[in-house]
Amino acid sequence: MRHKLKITREINLQIKHNLITMPGVSFKEISTVFSHPVALDQCDRFFEKFPGLVKRSAYDTSGSVKRIMEENLRDCAAIAGKQAAEYYGGNIVMKEIQDNKENFTRFVLLGRELETRKKADKTSIAFSFGNAAGALFKCLSVFALRDIDLTKIESRPIHGRPWEYLFYLDFLGNTGQESTLKALDHLRELTEFLEILGCYPRDASHEKKGM
């Protein structure tokens, strides 16, 4: 929010982690596995199955493949997507080793202006309020009263204000709709801070696949 940018698009990509080595290297030759810390954590069951493998954190997944290829690390592997293996010439020795086979990561496109196109059906907001009994319940009630579907809520501590939080909320609706406008007006009455982070078309591609 510091940069005053707005969300204009979202895309949900399915994450499939693969174990990648240099060409000609077998699984039995591997002793160390590089990847981004999040990717390593998402493959916990794989490491439980093969406890002899040493995990090493790297700055990103693709960079891990690049490293083992450029440094000729024949006793090492990387966890990354198949595109990284194809780009750097790596060999996939194990496919889809992630714990959750329905693992999606959400990416957003940012712009300088808030868009309110008719096909936009999802809105993201941020808000905060004073510490009072039932405050969060009251804030969420403005959406329930109008049958507005919430798709995500999370909180982050507010710097310099102990025990106070900034809430991030996604819901289905366009900021031009009457029900959305009334809900946001109602929410303003209950909060100390409210900002619309974006109004954009939701990516429902994973829902169409039954994921």
Rank of each mutant, 00 (worst) to 15 (best):
R2K: 14
H3L: 13
H3N: 13
E10A: 13
E10I: 07
Q14D: 06
Q14P: 08
I15S: 08
K16R: 14
P23T: 08
V25I: 15
S26T: 14
S31F: 01
F34M: 03
A39P: 00
D44G: 01
R45L: 05
R45E: 14
F47A: 04
E48H: 12
K49Y: 09
T61E: 08
S62R: 03
R74C: 11
R74I: 09
D75L: 05
D75C: 05
D75F: 01
K82S: 11
Q83L: 14
A84I: 09
A85N: 05
E86D: 15
E86A: 13
G90K: 00
I92F: 05
V93S: 04
Q98C: 10
D99W: 03
E102I: 04
F104M: 08
V108W: 09
L109R: 06
L110W: 03
E113P: 02
T116Q: 10
K118L: 09
A133Y: 06
G134N: 07
F137I: 11
F137H: 14
C139Q: 01
L140V: 02
V142C: 09
D149C: 10
S155W: 00
H159S: 15
G160V: 07
F167Q: 11
Y168F: 15
F171P: 01
Q177T: 04
S179K: 12
L184H: 05
E195G: 09
E195A: 10
G198F: 07
P201I: 12
A204N: 14
H206W: 11
